[in-house]
């Protein structure tokens, strides 16, 4: 038995990925559940408008982070700010009572706000009036499914080629690297698009999720996000020798995205350091775009930053992945000395 235990520890020590999973995963879970997993939001970004704006803003609970006070502002201006995700709550004051407009697409933020309704204020939830879960989760689920196909399924597909030795065969066939790369990735791209369509239609028909934004902008988010996740999948495949290794790596990229992207836990409730990790994850920005288009239909300019960040991620991740994948299909000249071209001897 002792021999068995010693052997197992030796193997464990040499399996760097498994060690990473065994040590990295508990640390990640500790961080997530210690600093991120909170449903109660303590900082609600708020705008207060109307004749009594100054007075009302001074009487608000400390959870309300008043970012703007505008005595000349009106309900229309507040609705636009909520639609463009500039604030999460807007209070429209009047001569008598006030109205608190709450962004229902931010489920937990809205619930936190509704637990702290200021006196003489009528709450009104916009975009998701019943605070249903489905309208908030379906857009995020679309991202999760794209992420799964892009990273797990694609990385497995490419690693399988290497394990079978068929990647080597492709490299000696009259194919350009771009033919192999596009030919390999295009089917996953199409399947992911198909799944995106299916989940979207199912969300609309089965769960009665509204879609009030632009299909074009939503499609653009999906497309750019797909490039990021396919790039992630290919990048994972280029550093994995086996399908098992690819799955381990894919899990390590999936978990933080599920936990820290705002899909489940609101970003606003996370500790600053953890929230910034969330800002580095592509799913965070896809969810912002998708939830916006499904529930709020914001101005395009309001989604410019998420889209620009996703595009940047796509360019970097996809670019690096393609560069590395291309290296698998062409000889590595790293340590090869360059010599004058060899002139073959005469035929004999």
């Amino acid at each position: 038995m002792k021999a068995m235990i010693v052997k197992e520890f030796r193997q464990m020590r040499r399996d760097k990925r498994a060690m990473g999973l065994m040590i990295g995963l508990p640390v990640m879970l500790l961080v997530i559940f210690g600093y991120a997993a909170r449903f109660d939001v303590g900082q609600i970004q708020t705008v207060v408008v109307g004749p009594n704006a100054v007075q009302v803003s001074q009487s608000l609970d400390s959870a309300y982070d008043v970012v703007e006070v505008d005595e000349t502002g009106d309900r229309q201006a507040v609705e636009r700010m909520l639609r463009n995700s500039e604030v999460e709550v807007g209070i429209v004051t009047g001569t008598g009572s006030s109205t608190m407009l709450v962004d229902g697409s931010e489920l937990f933020v809205a619930q936190s706000a509704l637990r702290r309704i200021p006196p003489a204020t009528q709450p009104e939830v916009l975009f998701n009036p019943n605070l249903d879960t489905a309208p908030v989760m379906v857009p995020a689920l679309i991202g999760l499914i794209l992420l799964f196909i892009g990273t797990v399924v694609t990385s497995l597909g490419v690693v399988r080629e290497r394990e079978q030795g068929t990647l080597e065969q492709l490299a000696v066939m009259p194919l350009r690297p771009v033919d192999v790369i596009v030919g390999k990735i295009a089917p996953y791209f199409l399947v992911a698009l198909f799944d995106m369509a299916v989940v979207t239609i199912a969300g609309l028909l089965l769960f009665n999720v509204p879609f009030v934004g632009s299909w074009l902008v939503f499609g653009l988010f999906g497309l750019v996000f797909l490039f990021v996740v396919l790039g992630l999948g290919v990048a994972i495949s280029t550093v994995s020798k086996s399908q098992g290794e690819a799955v381990q790596l894919a899990i390590m990229t999936l978990l933080p995205q599920i936990m820290l992207s705002g899909m489940i836990f609101p970003l606003e409730s996370m500790a600053a350091g953890v929230r910034w990790i969330g800002y580095l994850l592509p799913l965070t920005w896809f969810i912002k775009g998708a939830r916006g288009e499904f529930l709020k239909g914001p101005d395009f300019s309001a989604l410019a930053l998420p889209l620009a960040l996703l595009t940047l991620m796509a360019a970097v991740v996809f670019g690096v992945a393609m560069y590395r994948f291309r290296g698998d299909l062409a000889p590595k000249r790293g340590d090869a000395a360059q010599e004058a071209p060899f002139t073959p001897a005469a035929s004999s």
Partner: peptide, 23 residues
């Protein structure tokens, strides 16, 4: 086969230096 580059020395296929078209 062109899957690995030589560290030194030369390879010729069909009387010419290795090229993708020879595949």
């Amino acid at each position: 086969l062109g899957l690995l580059a030589p560290t030194s020395g030369s390879i010729a296929l069909f009387g010419e230096p290795q090229r993708a078209q020879q595949r």
